[in-house]
Design a binder for these strands. Structure first.
Lengths: 205, 205
DNA sequence: GTCTATAGGACGATAGAC
DNA sequence: GTCTATCGTCCTATAGAC
């Protein structure tokens, strides 16, 4: 951090960071993203996160309240783009539900598998069921409701049958996270389109 | 434990177990199954496992070498039935590949979602990538190869296109684990059949 | 703003009594 | 066969120097 005049303030870091984004909070989030997705949340220490972000463990607490805040923020940043996309698509009555469902699936897979780290894999961590992450789960539920509405429009199903089809479509999307994890070499955009095609076949349109 | 004559040996437990299966190793596995699936592997202590099995933490080491052995055994016991089923189906040339693929999907979902605990959820734990669980991953790979062979027989696809379809089918099956976790009230056998139907639609037959 | 140091607790595993 | 006790390690979070 620097003053408006450009003078450095605060004690210098023990290990100076080469380039990288000069935003310490962002670096912490990036480090957490990598470690949480690869080693899991519970198995990742605050030490490991902080050190990878180029600071000592205690310094982390200057930027975040603790480990949970890191996970909560990562989760919400991951579901937010898909949710924004879903809200937009729901208002576009001009296009058919079938086409909009395809587009939602494609965009969702693109987000889940497209980043540097496999952030979609965070959804699968057991810790996500905790109190602290209710905000994320609410957003995810709203996204699922959007899927349901588009499946309904595309198929004229209703009731339990509609729920079942929606669950299968939604399950496919979340399942592809695992596939992508096992073979990350496949181009994401091709894979996203193929998954969207498959989702429509599951929905039965 | 008792002698052939029925006399109790060893120091009595601090907390006597009511009924339950009198096999201590089995009780440990059952306790681990519940805790690992609900709280995750890394977040579950050996203390918690042992105590739920009705013994002190240290006593656990009389039956298993440690935490990892519990997870390894649970994983292998979960994939084994599906793999046995797949091997049988691969030899049944009399039935069409399409029908056998459907049956494999149905049986797999039944195993993954049918038990008391959602053992299928263990596949998703980040720790499973560890050295110690290579045996499980090998079995899972063989199962996936069986899926691939049946998809090939049912569709006449080949090469990259066959790989892609197989991954989508396999991803659906693993994805439904998550669905079942979010709504465990739905009858498993109905759900398993619906998932198998969906898998065939993804495969494109 | 970042550090060192440490409090205070939980963990996995082992030793040895009973 | 099961216990109690404990070792050594690692953890999260805080206090306070610089």
């Amino acid at each position: 951090m620097t003053t408006p005049g450009g003078r450095r303030v605060g004690r210098p870091r023990a290990v100076e960071r080469a380039g990288k984004g000069a935003d310490p909070r962002g670096e912490l989030l990036g480090a957490a993203a990598e470690l949480f997705t690869v080693k899991g949340y519970a198995a990742t220490s605050t030490r490991a996160v902080a050190e990878r972000a180029g600071m000592r463990q205690a310094t982390m607490y200057h930027y975040v309240s603790g480990k949970e805040e890191l996970l909560a923020e990562l989760l919400e940043s991951t579901v937010a783009p898909s949710l924004a996309c879903a809200r937009t698509l729901l208002t576009e009555d001009g296009r058919g539900a079938r086409e909009r469902l395809w587009e939602l699936c494609r965009a969702d897979v693109e987000v889940l598998c497209g980043g540097t780290y496999n952030l979609g894999g965070l959804y699968l961590l057991p810790e996500v069921r905790g109190e602290r992450f209710a905000g994320f789960r609410t957003a995810r539920d709203e996204l699922k409701a959007a899927y349901r509405e588009l499946v309904a429009g595309a198929t004229s199903l209703e009731g339990g049958e509609l729920d079942l089809r929606t669950d299968l479509v939604f399950g496919l999307i979340e399942g592809v996270i695992l596939i992508h994890r096992s073979d990350p070499t496949r181009p994401v955009s091709e894979f996203a389109r193929a998954t969207a095609d498959a989702a429509l076949r599951i929905a039965g349109v």
